[in-house]
Amino acid sequence: MPVLTGKELRIVGFLCNWCSYGGADTAGIGRFNQPTDLRIIKVPCSGRIDPLFVVKALMNGADGVLVSGCHPRDCHYAEGNFYARRRLEIMHNFLPIIGYEPERFEYTWVSASEGQRWQQVVTSFTEQIHKLGPAPKILGPEASDTLSLMQAAL
């Protein structure tokens, strides 16, 4: 049941197995209302996220990407999220040069017990993406496939 009115957008979520996936589960068990735009991919650790996943997702049609891991100092593998934080922060700030709003990608920390926080994160991120609208899409193999439509839209 979409909390937000209007058309669903595509948001990809990469969640670590130990904290955030549990957090999302907790939110589900607690029957907290959440928007349904998010598609979750479980990964072992936020340190497993190659920041290029974010770009790949956007280029293949996602409108937003959310990464969530254990809180700093709580990483199951001790320091995976510390490395992740540096990498993801850099990618977040890099996005504008390609032509994506940096707000299309956020990373955060949600523990397995924080069902409420998870609901808060998903709802707020989904709202943020809806505010931005659909991400720029690549519509065909040649640039003209996309550019002609972009020009028409402008």
């Binding site: 040069i97 390609i98 994506y100 709003e101 720029p136 640039a143 972009m150």
Partner: peptide
Amino acid sequence: AVETFENLSVPERFGYWLKEFD
């Protein structure tokens, strides 16, 4: 130069790269 480019609009930036990489 990077900063100047970043001041362009989103479609301008995205479109620029599509055109260049074509």
